[in-house]
């Protein structure tokens, strides 16, 4: 619940930032009475009001919970759930980020092999010959499907320079 309260505060900050961003939009006579910044400002106000309402609601819920069960340290330590799990989940995004950075340099096939091997390892598989075969064959299959059959011009990396 504490995490929810923090999120509601962050949403309020987002609303303020969005308003400031909307204020930077250049005004044009073509835009009509409302203007290009009209709707964004309205949305910023809406998010601001809603996030404050949400924060208030969460605050009262926290207080009610505290009054109902003042000595319940287990529940409190449960929040925010399990940070280790969240860190693992974010690890997939990091892998995705590496893929994006490597793709233009290594080319689609090799990057795909690394990604397939990396994700299956990260998701819990132990390194083995079978996993290696999965990554290599998978990379080739994806290359054949997307580049050869579907004709999508995926990055070829440094390979063309070698031949």
């Amino acid at each position: 619940m504490r995490a929810t309260f923090i999120v509601s505060c962050l949403l309020f900050l987002l609303a303020v930032a969005y308003w400031l961003g909307a204020d930077q939009i250049s005004v044009s006579r073509l835009a009509g009475g409302v203007g290009a910044d009209g709707m964004p400002k309205l949305l910023a106000v809406a998010l601001g009001v809603l996030s404050l309402a949400f924060a208030t609601q969460t605050f009262f819920q926290m207080r009610a919970k505290k009054l109902a069960a003042p000595a319940d340290p287990v529940k409190e330590s449960d929040e925010p759930a399990n940070w280790h799990q969240h860190a693992r989940a974010m690890g997939l995004i990091v892998l995705g980020g590496f893929y994006i950075l490597l793709l233009p340099h290594l080319g689609y096939m090799l990057s795909s092999m690394l990604m397939l091997g990396g994700v299956s390892f990260y998701a819990g598989l132990k390194p083995s010959l079978r996993m290696l075969a999965f990554a290599v064959i998978g990379g080739v299959v994806y290359y054949l499907i997307f580049t050869r059959i579907l004709g999508i011009p995926l990055p070829s990396g440094f390979w063309p320079r070698l031949f």
Binding site: A22, I25, S28, L30, G35, M39, P40, A44, L50
Partner: peptide, 28 residues
């Protein structure tokens, strides 16, 4: 309801990104 409305507003905010449909002014 509040969570739903917040997500709806954030969705609309994301829809504002890009060129303004009437004046052509860039936004966010």
């Amino acid at each position: 309801l509040i969570k739903g409305l917040i997500m709806g507003v954030i969705g609309l905010m994301l829809a504002m990104v890009g060129t303004d449909p009437l004046s052509g002014a860039p936004r966010f």
